[in-house]
Design a binder for these strands. Structure first.
Lengths: 220, 220
DNA sequence: CCGCCATTCGAACGCGTGTTTATTGACGCT
DNA sequence: AGCGTCAATAAACACGCGTTCGAATGGCGG
């Protein structure tokens, strides 16, 4: 289970990919997520994957391209889940979903990935790392991320037409801050702070908590 | 003004520091804040400071120690401001300050640093970078940061004795997420998103907005 | 059975890095 | 005046890095 292939990960491209490429992809994502891009060498990756050193450059061109390709794929997957949930919420509410449902579409996908039973936990950790390191080409994709976020901004504007748009943008900004950096090393700190009173693992409870907090901030 | 010394920066240690050490300190903080720790070489720093290459190792021991020393000092300064404001709020309210004043003590200091007219703007940018890069020794200081945060957690618990402590810890966690990663590259994105409708520079207005949002999340 | 092509492999290259060393200069104290 | 300490300088060192190269490998169609 640990290093086996990720079924369907390359299913979008018709040609069958070399097993080596998958091994490199998975090993790199794992190591990048755990130790950061700059702290992981190509030699570390190929050693973890059990392949030859030159494999990274052969299959991905360069170490930077490898990072970029992982980031592009995971971002796309996350955005798709979010967009799908927002779309469903729109259908469900005659084109004008309430604030809480919009926020749910924003929060639920990454929180589902965060679940320890989920294979994608490491992918989310990778995404957060990649976002804060930013290789110039990463920021470019982060720019297209804006057009993705615009859908949520528009939905919120429609849900609260009484608020000045400026106010809505700022609140969305705050809400994004709640998710992006938050997790992981910060989560450990929370455990120390509360002397282990927080019951982790109950992702649904956490989602409810976040929604309560964010929705309250959006009310008034 | 750009590269002049920082008066009183070493005033806590009685001996007068070499001017070179200050030059290195300031240049390093600036470059680290702008480009990140790993992307700035010792040669970059010494070139920016206009000093000899060996100065970093002579005055600070190593590049890592230099980063750590900058981080330690700035963290201490920020924490002191926050603790002072919390203390004043406690005195002002007979030992039990309301939620909004506690949150103000948490938000106001970094927001004041963020003001473009403030020299410390670069210091805050440095702190955020250093927090997300984390050189193992940094995380150790981040651990003592916990004991600092505990004061705010206790104040919030006293202000909302009706809430289960677990709930208070989580909400504090969310509030911290609003400040830590948020600024900077994210602020640019906000400008794109709102088509430049957000009036930056009005730090007080931003503080009020953040307080409204966070306080609402804490109510209920 | 042969030749082709993608893949794998070991080895090396060139470069930038943080750090160290040896030497020189300046300044204060006895 | 001379000594000793601290600071600054130029030069070099050792090492790890991403990348490249040429040869070896192996499966597959003709």
């Amino acid at each position: 289970m640990s290093l086996t292939d990720d079924p369907g990960a390359e299913s979008q491209t018709p040609e069958a990919e070399a097993a080596t490429k998958q091994l490199v992809f998975n090993a790199a994502e794992r190591l990048f997520a755990l130790h950061g891009f700059q702290n992981v060498s190509v030699r570390d990756i190929t050693a973890e994957a059990g392949v030859n050193l030159a494999s990274v450059n052969y299959h991905f061109g360069s170490k930077d391209s490898l990072l970029f390709e992982i980031f592009r794929r995971r971002t796309q997957e996350l955005n798709r889940e979010r967009a799908r949930m927002l779309h469903e919420a729109t259908d469900r509410n005659a084109g004008k979903p309430p604030v809480r449902e919009i926020l749910t579409a924003l929060f639920a996908p990454p929180l589902r990935w965060l679940d320890p039973s989920n294979d994608r936990r490491i992918s989310l950790q990778f995404l957060i790392r990649a976002r804060s390191e930013g290789t110039a080409e990463i920021r470019e994709v982060l720019g297209s991320d804006v057009s993705h976020l615009k859908r949520f901004a528009d939905a919120l504007l429609a849900a609260r037409p009484d608020l000045p748009p400026e106010e809505v943008y700022w609140r969305l900004h705050f809400v994004l801050g709640m998710i992006h950096q938050n997790r992981f090393m910060e989560l450990d700190r929370l455990h120390v702070l509360s002397s282990g009173q927080t019951r982790e693992g109950e992702v649904d409870a956490l989602l409810a908590r976040m929604l309560d907090f964010a929705e309250a901030g959006f009310s008034r």
